[in-house]
Amino acid sequence: MQLLPRRLAPAFRLIAVAGALGTAAIPAQAAEFLVRPIEVPELKAVFAEVESRTVVPARARIGGTVREVKVSEGSQVKEGDEIALVVDDKLALSLNAANARIQELKSQLANAATELDRAQQLLARGVASQSRVDTARTQYDVAANQVAAAEADRAVVVERAREGAVLAPAGGRVLTVPVTPGSVVLAGDEIARIASGQYYLRLSLPERHAADIKEGGTVRIGARGLSPEKAGGIAAARSGRIVKVYPEITAGRVMADVDVEGLGDYFVNERTLVWIEIGRRSVLAVPLDAVTTRHGIDLVRVAAAGGTIAVPVVLGERLEVDGAPRVVVLTGLVDGDTVLAP
């Protein structure tokens, strides 16, 4: 007996499986499905980085020494919260000097008030002239204005001391705190950086995909994690939307931003796995319940003259078409085949 070449053996085994199953009558409850090509998105798995819409610095308003830092990296703050305290020792000396000056001027004001009262009494008795009363009143007004000016100067010193409190310019998460208690800072120096905006994903794709990504396109975001095992599959991924495609290509990469909900607990610059549509391809897909597995071989029953034939197929990924689950058939079927399913 002549033996078959080894390269032909797998094909003859598939024919033997189909021949062993033979043809069968169409079940009464069987439904016919006409195999036609459908367009499905071509997805590319890439890593995206979590970014914040805005990152604002909290700056010192006066120069001095950092007395206290009330936040650390990762702290949540609200707008107006005190995050650090800067103290300038010279302000305390200026405040003491302002208080002493006010006390001096108040003594002069009291003396001017006494002189004015005495001049008015003497004028009433006819002893003093009106010019003396006018002079005393002028001295009193000058002393009162000097007290008011000194109190305003003291208010300036007090306000500068109050500005030593570094306040959060916006609510959000503290990213960095580059100072420690005891650090010497100048007015305008950065005390902390706060991520105050909504989080989004930043994509970096090769230049060859620049023409395939559009604003408004759908992106599928996996679970948190870098490995495919942690990120899960495409079927379990959530959806995001491309909101901006940057017009400049840098180092052979095109940048795009993706809006997605539920990134509040992510780290800024954390990477996560996403799938982005870079094109569309034509595939053949059949209903999931039309596929049966026997002895490790996937079979699809195809209508033929006089009955059905069980055709071995190679399956691809699963997808949904009009809300119905289907599976892609890589080999075994052609356009126009009629598949029978329960």
Rank of each mutant, 00 (worst) to 15 (best):
F33D: 06
F33W: 08
F33H: 09
V35E: 03
R36G: 03
R36H: 07
P37N: 07
I38W: 04
I38D: 01
V40Y: 06
V40F: 10
P41K: 05
L43F: 13
L43P: 04
K44Y: 00
K44M: 09
V46I: 14
V46T: 08
V46E: 04
V46L: 12
F47R: 05
A48T: 01
A48L: 01
A48H: 01
V50H: 01
V50A: 01
E51A: 11
S52N: 06
R53G: 15
V56D: 07
P57C: 09
A58W: 09
R59T: 15
R61F: 02
R61T: 07
R61V: 02
G63T: 08
G64T: 10
G64H: 07
G64D: 07
E68D: 14
V69D: 05
V69E: 05
K70P: 00
S72R: 15
G74R: 05
G74C: 06
G74K: 05
Q76K: 08
V77G: 06
V77R: 05
K78Q: 14
E79P: 00
G80W: 08
D81W: 05
I83Y: 10
A84M: 12
A84F: 12
L85K: 10
V87K: 08
V87A: 14
V87T: 13
D88P: 06
D88Q: 04
D89G: 09
D89I: 12
K90C: 03
L93G: 12
L93S: 13
L95M: 14
L95I: 14
N96S: 15
N96I: 14
N96Q: 15
A97E: 14
N99W: 09
N99P: 00
N99I: 14
A100V: 13
A100L: 14
A100E: 13
R101Q: 13
Q103L: 13
E104S: 10
E104M: 08
K106Q: 14
K106T: 15
K106I: 05
S107I: 08
Q108F: 11
L109N: 10
L109H: 10
L109F: 08
A110D: 08
A110V: 08
A110C: 00
N111D: 10
N111I: 07
A112W: 03
A113T: 13
T114I: 13
L116N: 09
L116W: 07
R118F: 04
A119V: 10
Q120K: 15
Q120P: 00
L122P: 03
L122S: 05
L123Q: 13
A124C: 01
A124K: 03
R125T: 11
V127K: 04
S129G: 15
Q130T: 09
S131R: 12
S131K: 11
S131G: 04
R132F: 03
R132I: 11
V133T: 11
D134A: 12
D134K: 11
T135H: 03
T135S: 15
T135I: 10
T135G: 14
A136E: 01
A136K: 05
R137V: 02
R137Q: 14
R137D: 12
R137P: 02
Q139T: 08
Q139C: 00
Y140V: 02
Y140C: 04
D141K: 12
V142A: 10
A143G: 05
A144I: 02
Q146C: 00
V147M: 06
A148K: 11
A148L: 06
A149M: 07
A149L: 12
A149R: 09
A150T: 10
E151C: 04
E151R: 14
D153G: 13
R154T: 03
V156K: 11
V157P: 06
V157K: 06
